[in-house]
Design a protein around this nucleic acid. Sequence first.
DNA 1: CTGAAAGCGCTTACAG
DNA 2: CTGAAAGCGCTTACAG
Lengths: 332, 332
Amino acid sequence: MAVSEPTASRRPTALDVAREAGVSRATVGFVLNNTPGQTIPKGTRERVLQAAERLGYRPNSAARTLASGRSRIILLVLPDWPIEFRLRNYLDEASAALDKAGYSLVTYTRQADQTARPLWEALSPDLVVGPARFSPSDVASMLACGVRRIYPHPDRAEPVDASLAISAGPEQQVDHLHERGHRNLVYAAFAQAHTSSMVTARYQAAVDRARTLGLAEPGLEWIDYRDGSGEAVRRWLGAGITGVAAFNDDVAAAVAGAVVRAGLRMPTDLAVIGHDDAPIATMFVPGLSTIRIDTVALGRRFADFALHKVEQRPGPISHNVPGPALIQREST
Amino acid sequence: MAVSEPTASRRPTALDVAREAGVSRATVGFVLNNTPGQTIPKGTRERVLQAAERLGYRPNSAARTLASGRSRIILLVLPDWPIEFRLRNYLDEASAALDKAGYSLVTYTRQADQTARPLWEALSPDLVVGPARFSPSDVASMLACGVRRIYPHPDRAEPVDASLAISAGPEQQVDHLHERGHRNLVYAAFAQAHTSSMVTARYQAAVDRARTLGLAEPGLEWIDYRDGSGEAVRRWLGAGITGVAAFNDDVAAAVAGAVVRAGLRMPTDLAVIGHDDAPIATMFVPGLSTIRIDTVALGRRFADFALHKVEQRPGPISHNVPGPALIQREST
DNA sequence: CTGAAAGCGCTTACAG
DNA sequence: CTGAAAGCGCTTACAG
């Protein structure tokens, strides 16, 4: 006897599943959510699962969020420039790990012009994470939208998670140039990225390392890839610079291109090392030395870290991340 | 007389605003949503808006979604490879335009391994859009999750929106090579991208154009940037190929690198044209000819298109998109 | 023009 | 071990 069969157009609800399985609505919830502290007999559990399967039941996420007060969404705010090569691996790995724990990772590149409604307003994420401190107005907006966890925390001076801002790469660039005999270095980045917090973070790491090695403090040089950067290269050579640590491989390629066009040679006239081991580092002629990061491991670490924050777990984060690897090619 | 002031820890609700403004809850909704058909006196409206402002009220998005049945989220599923340069502009422009209409754009790169819960399950988007047809299981999953609009529509043979799959770029590559006197062409893409629907779409456009011009059908050549691609270049030259249309500038750079390393010259021995006008096209030595797309205009067009779909508007989409521009450098 | 009230589909104490 | 019920914070007919 068919009692109000769900029509084709209506999406089945937990009540439909309960009726189909002959149990109460609450029991359906307990089974489907594996609610701890509830002991459901095997038979009941099976019946519920089969009924859900048969009806193609998917819980309504808005209702769940409203009732539970948690969206199970983690919002990762990415810097708007530059998108790193291999970021894809990082995000895939992080998403997969968070998915296993029942969370969805949404990435969001905040626009420079801040007039648009920020994404956390529409998503009510349980956690918003960024690679650097958020502006006071962003923090206020998140708080007003009910975001309970923000990282980096607006009031605490925590170090940024290692998976988001790694200093080992720039350090290794400086070490490598130093080993190759270079004593006067500059750090190069694209002028288009001068607002990027990642640039300043990496530059700072390079400066600290140079100081430790007893080198002069490398200058931060903003170059423009559109003009060939020839002027900058001539200036550096005039100032006795012999080594360039670049923010990423694109920057390294821009510098290397200027060197080649000026009729100079690498690494004899100028040594250049990039960062990320992007395809261009292989394709460029000459091949570009660079630093390879284990982004898969970093992504996993990010997931651990985010779960730690969102579930308020105390103690340290377990995952170890292998250090970056030097890839030496023809430019150093 | 303070009547149950909202504590610092509680987020204000529409009821708080109503009390603060001295109106009913429903009125608050009418004012804040600009509900058509409701005529609210100016004074009341002002009072409500000021009360909302004063309390820092933000509507709870989950509650709104649950009650209205619409999330006002548009989910754009991106192909997992390759991410186009200038995609950022496209997305920023699209987001801004959609935001003005009250929608949030979320982008989502679907992982190759499909075990994770797809993002549409957590977000309940009003519309899911992708650059190519979704798999039957994806469609089934979207339907089960209550997604009402899917594009491309699973049952209809609509052409993909022009903002997502533009054929004018590949056509212009072929035209340019043809004008420069090349008659035997290949189309090159990275082997790592062989599952990408964008590659096949662009390749098909190039093939169609070659046919129109009376040229032999260009072969689709998969190259690997890691091995220098020297073997492929030698093979092409042996087969009388003189022109290469590349999927993007990275591919063009890989080919160009192989040409340089083989001691050959561009465009004399082989002409190469890329696509996107990415930084690498400027930085590479020699400079790479390429196609520049007006991604800002495309992004705006995508927004128009998405609003059209999500609000079921009939008729054509208004926005005109300027054609791609040829950027000639040293490689052709 | 404004308000009281039902309802969206869940979660989660609280009883039995 | 299971169920009846309140409640999450909105939207939206429906009365007045």
